[in-house]
Computed example of a mutant assay.
Amino acid sequence: MQAWRDERGFTLIEMLVVLFIIGVVIAIALPNLISAGEKAQQRACAASRKMIGAQADNYFLEMGKYPATVAALTEAQYLRSTPTCPAGGKYTIDTGAVSEKRVVCTKHPHKE
């Protein structure tokens, strides 16, 4: 029996405690990581909407009307390529809207 006491290692209880602590840390951190990813997508989408809106305004200044679609901006070479929303949404141009809300994304609508 003396040999058992001299062996080094972890008991089952110690291993379960460590696994429980790791589980708690993951449960706390995971929602924050998912939330951070969604916020990054929303910010990237907002930046794209602003860029499209600015180029739509430039188009208006030169052509006298707003483009019907975002693809029309690309065809007229106001954009190098048609921007895509990181979440897979589609951008549309609302010619009757005020300048800040002229470009709309199907996945990230403007918040009031």
Rank of each mutant, 00 (worst) to 15 (best):
Y91N: 04
V18I: 13
K107Q: 12
L16Y: 02
A40T: 13
I21W: 02
A54E: 14
T69K: 11
E14W: 09
E38W: 07
R5T: 08
I21R: 06
T82N: 10
F10I: 03
V25G: 00
I26A: 13
I13W: 09
V17G: 04
A29I: 05
A46S: 11
T106M: 01
L12T: 13
V17S: 05
I26S: 02
D57K: 13
G96Y: 06
Q55A: 06
L73F: 10
T11D: 06
S81Q: 11
V104I: 12
Q41Y: 14
A36W: 01
A27Q: 01
Q41W: 13
R8P: 00
M1P: 05
A54V: 14
L73T: 14
E62H: 11
T95G: 15
R8G: 03
S81K: 13
G23E: 00
G9M: 00
M1Q: 07
R5H: 09
A40N: 06
C105K: 04
L61T: 06
M51R: 07
K90L: 15
L33A: 15
C45M: 07
P109C: 08
A54H: 11
E62M: 12
A76V: 11
L19C: 14
V98G: 05
E14D: 05
S48Q: 06
L61F: 13
P31Q: 00
G23K: 01
Y78V: 01
R43C: 03
G37D: 12
Q2N: 09
C45G: 09
G23Q: 02
A54P: 04
R43W: 14
A46L: 09
A47V: 10
G9K: 01
I22F: 04
A36K: 02
A87L: 06
K111C: 01
I21V: 15
H110E: 08
T74I: 01
T69H: 02
P86R: 03
F10D: 07
L61I: 11
K101W: 13
Q41P: 07
P83L: 05
A72L: 14
A56I: 14
P83V: 06
E100C: 02
R49V: 09
T69F: 00
G64S: 04
T84L: 13
A27V: 00
V18F: 10
T11Q: 03
E62T: 04
K90F: 04
I34D: 03
Q55L: 07
A87S: 15
K50V: 08
R43I: 14
Q55P: 06
R80K: 13
R80H: 08
R5E: 10
C105L: 10
Y91V: 09
V98D: 13
V104L: 04
F10Y: 11
L12D: 03
